[in-house]
Nucleic acid binder design. Sequence first.
DNA 1: CGACTAGTTGAGGCCAGTCAATGTTGGTGG
DNA 2: CCACCAACATTGACTGGCCTCAACTAGTCG
Lengths: 274, 274
Amino acid sequence: MDTHSNEHSAAAATTSRLSLSGSSNSVVISLRDLKSHCNLCGMRGLCLPVGLSPADLQKISTLVDILIKLKKGETLYRSGTPFTALYAVRLGSLKTTVLAEDGREQVAGYYMLGELVGLDGIGSGTHNCHAIALEDTEICVMPFDQLEILARELPTLQHNLHQVLANEITRDHSVMLLLGSMRAEERVAAFLVNLSDRYCRRGYSSTEFVLRMTREEIGSYLGLKLETISRLFSRFQEEKLILVQGRAIKIVDTEALRHLSGQNGNTLPKAETA
Amino acid sequence: MDTHSNEHSAAAATTSRLSLSGSSNSVVISLRDLKSHCNLCGMRGLCLPVGLSPADLQKISTLVDILIKLKKGETLYRSGTPFTALYAVRLGSLKTTVLAEDGREQVAGYYMLGELVGLDGIGSGTHNCHAIALEDTEICVMPFDQLEILARELPTLQHNLHQVLANEITRDHSVMLLLGSMRAEERVAAFLVNLSDRYCRRGYSSTEFVLRMTREEIGSYLGLKLETISRLFSRFQEEKLILVQGRAIKIVDTEALRHLSGQNGNTLPKAETA
DNA sequence: CGACTAGTTGAGGCCAGTCAATGTTGGTGG
DNA sequence: CCACCAACATTGACTGGCCTCAACTAGTCG
């Protein structure tokens, strides 16, 4: 709300380093004025995996001292801008989109509360996707150079960082599997099951949630057209798998969805499927 | 050649830690007996990006003391086996395949000389794909726990490791773009251009090379069927873009291929293609 | 109210998959 | 040397799933 941040010199300095686009009217707040450091944060243990001692957390807090507030549709960073930091979603959600050289754009990821965004920039020092808020969103900024320094002191943090990076690779592999070898209905089912699981892990309902993406964004993520998403939502509803009301989703038959998606839940082992 | 390695206690110990499947008859050699440490290796600067001083390289050499020789078709690791090390391809090539829970398998990556395999295991401590040699292949083993220790001492190595991980993410994103939004001919063109570039960077011909994968493996990687690959190779040949002779490929019209693949090379910008 | 965006639904077309027959290659053994 | 076999590859005919185009509805904002 308080857009007069020029008195927050630390925040202002970091803002320029972060290369937020001038057109963006995102709000940057120095956490030094707030009491919300990592050890108080509800997301603790989500954005960085478990195993950190209170003392370690205290040290990590020192490098998370900027909070960015984005309104729906605002961009956290754009493809081509310099990479300086990792971003932890503290509230809300974002999408990332990759761009082909011919201008085609595709949603590459969908990040919610407690997840880290911006890993893609480490390789080249430049972001190669856009990160855009899907709703009003708060982001903790972790300057990467400081993170690397701290990781040398704290083996647990170092290993956590490696895990976060590798988990992103694993996640991408399952998306590749989805895009490369699943039919449309399987993709949509897998998408819903994935969302359900992630909401569940965060303490929300695994059967009722509100989509933050349009049909077009979902389609882009799944390599399908928006009409196909719409049709499949309707068909799943006819088949009593889900209830759809615009973006509100209620999962009725979790098992059937899970089965469709190829992840046969915790049901029979089926040893013969090589 | 010398398969009596039971006197190489270090090699034998590491072998068990690596959990090589018993059925595999891959050969494990201790590099202590060889003179081929990193600072002598021709791949230097490929498997780990640039910027390492000779002194740093010397230290890294100390952790690369095992060489694995795989014959065509042998597996380096399988999905589900414990993750212990990263593997640098010293000679030859490998594919990695991810498995859906319903048994479907898909080629996730194709690694050649100087590239690192095994990153996927860092997240969970367990590999979640298979790595299989496409031809006779030599692999340098870098135990990951030792690598992490060394990375804490050498900031350059630490940053290189982060870059390697992040580059894998970037690579996966471009595969996702390919699978999600390109038509078959564009995918195949992109595949050929990508191979061409990578061979070129390694000092081989960018226009003539021999595929190490079957049509089926290429198709699996590109989310297509083997017949489609075959048909497109034939069509590209008719259209004078390439010459195909089994697995031998000669690229005739690089520009046209590059254009098809969406990476419009270093030609005209074409601003109007939104 | 009109303009706009998001979503639904239908009709028809096309790209890639499926099925099947045939050709090619490389290795093995008589 | 050739015969034989298995794995890999090519090509054709047909099918079907998803895309394209288009019309229509619902909700929102000025």
